[in-house]
């Protein structure tokens, strides 16, 4: 499937560009809806803060699982748009006092926020909360299931650096089994016309990835061959010591991204990583710091723009924006 990089003229077609109340996953998005979000995000890149956009609106970041960069990114995105952003993290919440997830959801809802951003360690938890609250819900990662804003920011980064997504070969490498980033990217990038590869040792692959549009490789050299984009995934420390792979050094030897290995990919290959990186485990420092090829810091920048776009689009109907 190939999809035009620019979205159609929605108004002329009589189609609502983004008919979703929540952003729970990229699997719910038609290709043109994802592209619409990318275009909206593009508008915010390098722009000064637009504090009147969400002025007076309250955004709650409810993070049931630890996060630094995603939480920060959502907080900055909300603040640049002028929203009152409050963060609830596990350490400070009544979750520790035994409150159930749904009670927490009802409590948050009773504070009448205008959007809730949720991260939770269980797949489906965000959907569960979304069904109980009156405002838009943005999934900031649920278990191994989805991390839609990450996939969108990855797509945006690729599109800006490569000028397109369709027809590109994207190798996603590392702990795919436990990765929501990989799942969301398989779905989104293949829906947008990329050839997606899954590259991992067999114990970290997961099953039936072909059915999600991915081509599966257990050899890094083969998986990187001719790739336009290499996306590395973080390997959790507790999985490095015998459970899924024998040791970090063995992992680096066979699945670490080194300059020599990267030479299998196309010369203009783009290297990405959702962060935080384990230098010397999944990625060599020389590769991570290769300014010409690494898009890792740009991903962070795109993350803020994508989250601004998502907060903007999802609150338009509450803000009475014409046509929404």
């Amino acid at each position: 499937m190939t999809v035009s990089a620019s979205h159609p003229d929605f108004a002329a077609a009589g189609v609502h560009p983004f008919p979703h109340r929540h952003l729970l996953g990229v699997a719910d998005l038609a290709p043109w809806q994802a592209l619409y979000l990318l275009d909206e995000a593009e508008r915010w890149i390098g722009q000064p803060a637009a504090r009147d956009t969400l002025a007076g609106l309250t955004v709650i970041n409810a993070f049931f699982e630890n996060s630094t960069r995603t939480l920060l990114s959502f907080e900055i995105a909300g603040k640049r748009l002028g929203a009152d952003v409050v963060n609830m993290t596990v350490g400070t919440s009544s979750v520790k006092k035994g409150e159930t997830l749904l009670d927490t959801a009802l409590t948050l809802n009773a504070m009448h926020p205008d959007a809730i951003v949720i991260r939770h360690q269980a797949a489906g938890a965000v959907e569960l909360i979304a069904a109980k609250v009156d405002c838009p819900v943005l999934n900031a990662g649920d278990g191994r299931h989805e991390h839609p804003t990450q996939a969108l920011l990855d797509a945006l980064t690729i599109r800006r650096r490569k000028g397109r997504i369709e027809g590109l070969t994207v190798a996603i490498c590392g702990d795919i089994l436990h990765s929501r980033v990989a799942r969301s990217n398989f779905v989104l990038l293949s829906n947008l016309g990329a050839q997606v590869r899954a590259v991992a040792p067999p114990t970290l692959l997961g099953t039936d990835l072909e059915r999600m549009g991915a081509e599966v490789f257990t050899s890094m050299d083969e998986g990187l061959d001719g790739a336009d984009v290499v996306m590395m995934l973080r390997l959790q420390r507790e999985r490095m010591t015998g459970a899924y792979i024998p040791s970090p050094r063995e992992y680096f030897r066979f699945h670490g991204l080194t300059a020599a290995r990267l030479a299998k990919a196309r010369p203009d290959v783009l290297v990405m990583h959702p962060g935080p990186m384990n230098r010397g485990v999944e990625i060599a420092t020389e590769v991570a710091d290769d300014i010409a090829r690494s898009a890792i810091t740009e991903q962070v920048e795109m993350g803020v723009a994508v989250r601004m776009a998502c907060l903007d689009v999802l609150t338009r109907s509450r803000r009475g924006v014409a046509g929404w």
Binding site: D142, R183, T207, R211
Partner: peptide, 12 residues
């Protein structure tokens, strides 16, 4: 284990 569980992100 299978496509469905993979898509759902459930431990399988």
């Amino acid at each position: 284990e299978g496509e469905f569980a993979t898509r759902m992100g459930l431990p399988a």
